[in-house]
């Protein structure tokens, strides 16, 4: 009985943890339960969430994408280059459209490259994305000679703060990505196949799953999500930066595994990742408000990852049986 309690509640535990923590903080942390701070939370959550969702797709297929930070950096400078009035490649209204499209395209392209290396050449995902991380973050720095790109269009910079029908635009974007990924994973053939590959890739291949295509898709999707995250970050910092997102890799992976997605594939849910990312952001935000410095936040994050791991999937198969 005890074992099954932990097993079933393991995944859900992050939800209770999140809500419990939120309630406690509402009383403890000064200025936490205010409208302002709630917006703050939301703004911090959205990019992390979107990137973590992409990572969730990859992890369900038993892969990993370490290259997201480099994708963010490359897409950020791409956007900066296409939109900045310094380069003046496009006139102002078009520059926004081409800039955003260009960023998405670059993100998807790098993701596709990862996917092809994993699916077609049989390279281990960890090494592929590790090397593309080095390659593309190097590329971003080299291309810009480590200089930021400024003077982005007003419309782009203001995007995170604009609103439609009283609700900020980023919320729409977040909800769309959340809804789309939930739909893909839970309602479609694509989703069924993504889980199947994570559970047993050979069985999937023989049963007619288009393995290579799906794997390429998940990495491309992760690249797409990272690009969306990069759009957020770039707009908020008002610069295209070649070192953007350098430190969020482990936050993203942390969010996904705290949510209970298994590193061994086949297990993971969008809603778990939502709460995983939410919890990461909550920690940052609340500990900041209590004026705990950021090193303590790191130590707390580390502990939370361990606690979450104790409760969920990432220990079941820890001693491999092959």
């Amino acid at each position: 009985m005890k074992a099954s309690f932990f097993k079933t509640s393991g995944a859900a535990s992050i939800i209770y943890l999140c809500l419990g923590y939120y309630i406690v903080m509402a009383f403890v942390a000064p200025g936490f339960f205010t409208v302002n701070n709630t917006w703050n939370l939301l703004y911090n959550l959205l990019p992390l969430l979107v990137i973590a969702i992409g990572q969730t797709f990859v992890m369900i297929t038993a892969g990993i994408d370490l290259s997201i930070t480099s994708i963010i950096a490359v897409t950020s400078i791409t956007g900066g280059y296409l939109m900045s009035s310094d380069t003046a490649i496009f006139d102002s209204p078009e520059s926004l459209i081409f800039g955003v499209l260009g960023m998405l395209l670059v993100g998807i392209s790098i993701g596709t490259l990862n996917g092809i290396a994993v699916a077609r050449f049989g390279m281990p995902a960890f090494m592929v994305t590790l090397t593309t991380m080095m390659l593309f973050s190097g590329l971003a720095i080299w291309l810009t000679q480590s200089q930021n790109i400024y003077n982005l269009p007003e419309a782009f910079v203001n995007m995170p703060y604009s609103s439609f029908l009283g609700i900020p635009t980023p919320v729409y974007l977040g909800v769309i990505v959340l809804g789309l990924s939930y739909f893909l994973l839970n309602k479609t053939l694509l989703g069924e196949w993504i889980y199947a590959i994570g559970l047993n890739v050979e069985t999937s291949r023989i049963s007619g799953v288009k393995v290579a295509r799906i794997i390429i898709f998940v990495y491309a999707f992760s690249g797409f999500c990272a690009a969306i995250g990069a759009i957020f970050y770039t707009a908020r910092l008002e610069t295209g930066s070649p070192v953007m997102g350098q430190n969020i890799l482990l936050d993203v992976i942390g969010a996904v595994v705290i949510g209970g997605t298994s590193l061994f594939g086949g297990k993971g849910k969008i809603i778990w990742t939502f709460f995983g990312a939410f919890f990461m952001v909550l920690l940052d935000n609340s500990l900041n408000l209590m004026s705990l410095s950021f090193f303590l936040i790191m130590i707390v994050k580390g502990s939370v990852i361990l606690i979450a791991a104790l409760l969920n999937a990432n220990r079941e198969k820890s001693l491999r049986t092959t």
């Binding site: 482990l250 992976i253 942390g254 595994v257 590193l263 090193f295 303590l296 936040i297 790191m298 130590i299 994050k301 580390g302 502990s303 990852i305 361990l306 791991a309 104790l310 990432n314 220990r315 198969k317 820890s318 001693l319």
Partner: peptide, 20 residues
């Protein structure tokens, strides 16, 4: 604790750097 090495060391990565 039988936690996957990747996660264990991800956590201690945070803790070590935070402490430092």
């Amino acid at each position: 604790a039988k936690i996957v090495p990747f996660i264990v060391t991800l956590a201690t990565f945070y803790m070590g750097r935070g402490l430092g």
